[in-house]
Design a protein around this nucleic acid. Structure first.
Length: 139
DNA sequence: GCCAACGTTGGC
DNA sequence: GCCAACGTTGGC
């Protein structure tokens, strides 16, 4: 099972906002980046991911899960963009800050560290385990 | 609030 | 098809 990381500015849409959406989750719309879209195309129902707060907090705050695979983005009239639906699984025990991730040498290659601008990122199994360990949760 | 990095756009 | 200009993102 593949793992992912979703970035969002908490001012716009926070992890708490996703929690409030409940089991049905939320369309991850508004992504206008081909790389990010391609990652979403590769997602399967049940794939887990981290939820990262950019700008405010700059930390991984929760775990999410894909509940609906790739489909047209309802906010895009051109038909170019697609997205998945995700729901909140639960908060992490200890948020993992960007500073902490950068300080962890085993996470040097992580997209969050090396290409922070990408809004939907793949996370390797090894990275997943390390971040879970840092976050105080089971993988 | 600044600025570096990156992606996209459009002229040639 | 190249590349300069521009806009956006996000860390600091």
């Amino acid at each position: 099972m593949a793992h992912w990381l979703y970035k969002s500015e908490p001012d716009t849409f926070s992890f708490q906002d996703l929690v409030a959406k409940g089991e049905a989750g939320q369309e991850w719309d508004g992504v206008r980046n081909y790389q990010a879209r391609n990652h979403m195309r590769a997602m399967k129902v049940g794939d887990r991911g981290f939820f990262y707060h950019s700008n405010e907090g700059k930390e991984i705050v929760g775990v999410v899960e894909v509940v609906k695979e790739i489909h047209p983005d309802s906010t895009d009239d051109s038909g170019t963009w697609e997205c998945v639906d995700i729901r909140a699984v639960g908060p992490v025990k200890t948020p993992v800050t960007l500073v902490a991730a950068k300080a962890e040498s085993r996470l040097k290659g992580m997209a969050l560290v090396s290409n922070s601008r990408l809004s939907v990122q793949p996370v390797t199994d090894a990275e997943w385990d390390i971040v879970c360990e840092m976050a105080g949760i089971s993988p």
